[in-house]
Design a protein around this nucleic acid. Structure first.
Lengths: 349, 349
DNA sequence: CTGTTAGCGCATTCAC
DNA sequence: GTGAATGCGCTAACAG
C-alpha cells in the first residue's frame, strides 16, 4: 500500500468509507464541476446523456448520498411535509396518516410527524417546529386551531390542509366529512326508530371540534323533533382504549328515561355494549347504543354497533393530493373537498 | 408613513411580515453579534442573564423561528430521528410509533416517518432517504434487513435500534420480545390443552421475520412433543383489515384432522372466530383458534380469543430511550433489551 | 462573557 | 451543455 494523498482513483474507491461523500468529491472524481453533478441528480434533462451516465455511475460507486439539508437550505425547498395528528395510537388517525403518506412519499416528499395529544397549544408548537424545519407544507387534523397558529401559518405562506372535518371556508385548504351532518343524520336515524331521550358521551380535556360538531348536529335534530336536548356526559378515558363503557350504568341511574346513548367514538361504544351485556342491560330493547367511526370490532361484537362510517383513508389521500397540487402550482382545483359518510344501521340501535 | 431604508426600529416591528426573520436581523435589532443570539437559544447558560432576556424578548417580538436546516447543516446535528414501520394503518405499529414519539419529542427530537409496506427493499430506500436528511438516528421494525442496508447504516455511523423483535446480537441496538419463544409458548399451551394437529396461517408477500419466527417456535414444540409439524397456510389479505378468516373453512376441508389454527396476527384470528361461528364450526370444541397480539376486539368477541400479548407501546418507549442514551453519549446500558409476553388463555383455545 | 473568522454542502444566477 | 462565483442561515473554533 502506497501512502499518498487522496487522488481521483482513491476517491472512486471511497465506498468503504463513511457515507460523507460530498458533491464536490464526486465532481472531482468525475472530472466535472459540482453543478454538473447536481444537475445530473436534480435536473437530468439539462445534462448530456453521456456525462450524466458517467457521473451517476461514479456517484453510485462512491456511495454518494446527497445532503438534503444543504440542498434544502440552498433551494428553499425541503421536500418535507409536516403532519399533525392528535395521536397515532388511534387507528383512525393512523389510517389518515397512512393515506397521506401513500400519496406524498411516491412524490418524493417525506413526512415529519407530530402528535398534538388533542391539545391546540401543542399543535401550535408543532407548527412552529415544523416551520423551523422549513417544511414545504403542513397537514393538520380538524378545523379548530389557535388563532396564533393560523396567523403564523398564513404569514409563513406555508400551504396547509385541514383534514378530517368539512370546512367550506378553510383558511387555506380542507378535506373531510361534515361531522355536524353526521351527528344530525345519526340522530334522525335513532329518532325514526323510536328513540326519544338521548345521552351523548364525549371525552374531557380533548380539543376536538369534531366531537363537538357531532353533538351539535344531534342537538339540532332533537330540537327539530321537539325532543329534549341530549344529556351531555364526559368521560376521561383515552378514546381508542375502549374503556369507559361503564358510563352507561351511571347514565341509566341518573336518568332512567334515557333510551339511547350516542358515543363520540366507536371503541368506547363497543365497550359500552360489552358492559351492558355483562350487567344485563338489554341492547337495543332497553337502550340503544350508537357511535361514530367503524372497525371490525364494531361489526363483530354482539349486538353489532350501529355507527357512522367515515372514509378515513380517503381523508389522508385527498389531503395529500390537495397539497401536491398546490406544491406543483396547479391551483385550479377547489380548496375544500367534502367527503361523505354512511349510517351503518346494525343491531345495537 | 416615512419611506426609509430598514432600521433597527423597523426590524423590531417585523412581526407582521413573513416569518423569514434571520438570526442576523435579530442580532442587529438587539445590538449584539449573531453568535450571541444563537447562544441565547441553544446554550442559554453561556450568556449573561441580562443579554439573554434582552435578546430573547426581541427575537420573540420579531417572530423569529430558527432555521433548523441551516442549524443542522452547520452543527451536523439534525435533531431528527427516522422511523421505519411496515404500515401505520395497523394499530400495533401505530402504538410502537407513538411510544417512540412520546420519548423523542419531549427530548427535542422530531420523527421523520417512513412506511416500508413490509418490503425490505423499501426499507433500504427509506434508510437512504433518511441518511440524506442526516437524521441523528434510525428506528427500524424487526430484525431482518437487507445486508446493504445494515452496511450503509454501519458506514454512516448512524445509531440504529431494531424494534419489536428480540435480538441478542443486534447490529447496533435492539428491543423486543422473542417471537420464537412466543410461538413456542403458545404451542405448548395448546398442546397442554390436548391439541394435536396444527395449522399456521401467515401472510403472503410480507417481509416479516417476526411472523416466521413465531412459526418456527411452534414447529419446535410440535417436534418436541412428537407431533406432526403445523400445516402452513398463507393468505394474501392485509393484516389489520381482519379479513381472510374464511381460510379456516379451506383448512378443515383440506385436512379434517386439524384441531387448532394459529394465526400470525390477531385481527384475522378474530375474523376466523367470527366466520367459524357463522358457519357452525364449534370453537373451541371442534377447532381451537389462537393468534398473536391483543386488542379490545380479541377480548370482546364470542368466544374470546386466546392470544399472546406483547408490550407494544413499551417497544417504542424503550427504543426511544436506547436512542436517547446513545445520542447523549451514555453508552453504559445494554445494547439489547428483552421484553416479555403473556399468553392470554381465553375461550377460543 | 462576547465577538471574529471560516466554513457546513449545495443550488441559483449569470456567464461562456 | 457546462462552469465560476456567490450566498442560503447558522454554528464551531478560537480569540479576546
Amino acid at each position: 500500500m502506497v501512502d499518498h494523498p487522496s487522488s481521483d482513483a482513491e476517491a472512486a474507491h471511497a465506498e468503504v468509507e463513511l457515507s460523507t461523500v460530498r458533491l464536490q468529491e464526486v465532481a472531482e472524481a468525475a472530472g466535472v464541476s459540482t453543478i454538473t453533478v447536481s444537475r445530473c441528480i436534480n435536473n437530468p434533462a439539462r445534462v448530456s446523456e453521456k456525462t450524466r451516465e458517467h457521473v451517476l455511475k461514479i456517484a453510485n460507486r462512491m456511495g454518494y448520498i446527497p445532503n438534503r439539508l444543504a440542498s434544502s437550505l440552498a433551494s428553499a425547498r425541503s421536500m418535507v411535509i409536516g403532519v399533525v395528528v392528535p395521536t397515532i395510537a388511534n387507528p383512525i388517525h393512523g389510517m389518515v396518516l397512512q393515506g397521506a403518506a401513500d400519496i406524498l412519499e411516491p412524490a418524493g416528499y417525506q413526512v415529519l410527524l407530530g402528535n398534538s395529544h388533542f391539545s391546540k397549544q401543542s399543535e401550535f408548537e408543532l407548527v412552529r417546529t415544523f416551520l423551523g424545519h422549513r417544511v414545504d407544507g403542513i397537514l393538520l387534523t380538524g378545523r379548530d386551531h389557535l388563532e396564533e397558529c393560523l396567523d403564523l401559518l398564513a404569514r409563513s405562506r406555508t400551504p396547509m390542509v385541514e383534514m378530517f372535518d368539512y370546512n367550506p371556508e378553510p383558511s387555506d385548504m380542507a378535506v373531510g366529512s361534515s361531522n355536524f351532518d353526521a351527528g344530525a343524520s345519526l340522530g334522525q336515524y335513532l329518532i325514526a326508530r323510536g328513540r326519544r331521550q338521548f345521552a351523548y358521551v364525549g371525552h374531557t380535556g380533548l380539543d376536538d371540534s369534531r366531537m363537538i360538531a357531532r353533538l351539535q348536529g344531534l342537538i339540532k335534530v332533537c330540537e327539530a323533533a321537539g325532543l329534549a336536548p341530549p344529556r351531555h356526559y364526559e368521560i376521561s378515558s383515552d378514546p381508542g382504549t375502549g374503556t369507559g363503557g361503564e358510563v352507561v350504568g351511571t347514565i341509566l341511574r341518573d336518568v332512567p328515561e334515557i333510551d339511547a346513548v350516542v358515543f363520540a367514538g366507536h371503541q368506547v361504544a363497543v365497550g359500552a355494549i360489552r358492559y351492558s351485556v355483562d350487567v344485563g342491560i338489554a341492547v337495543p330493547q332497553r337502550l340503544a347504543i350508537a357511535g361514530f367511526g367503524d372497525s371490525p370490532i364494531a361489526k363483530w361484537i354482539t349486538p353489532s354497533l350501529t355507527t357512522v362510517r367515515f372514509p378515513v383513508r380517503e381523508n389522508g389521500i385527498e389531503a395529500g393530493k390537495l397539497m401536491l397540487w398546490r406544491l406543483q402550482g396547479k391551483q385550479c382545483k377547489q380548496r375544500s373537498i367534502r367527503l361523505g359518510f354512511e349510517i351503518l344501521g346494525r343491531d345495537s340501535a
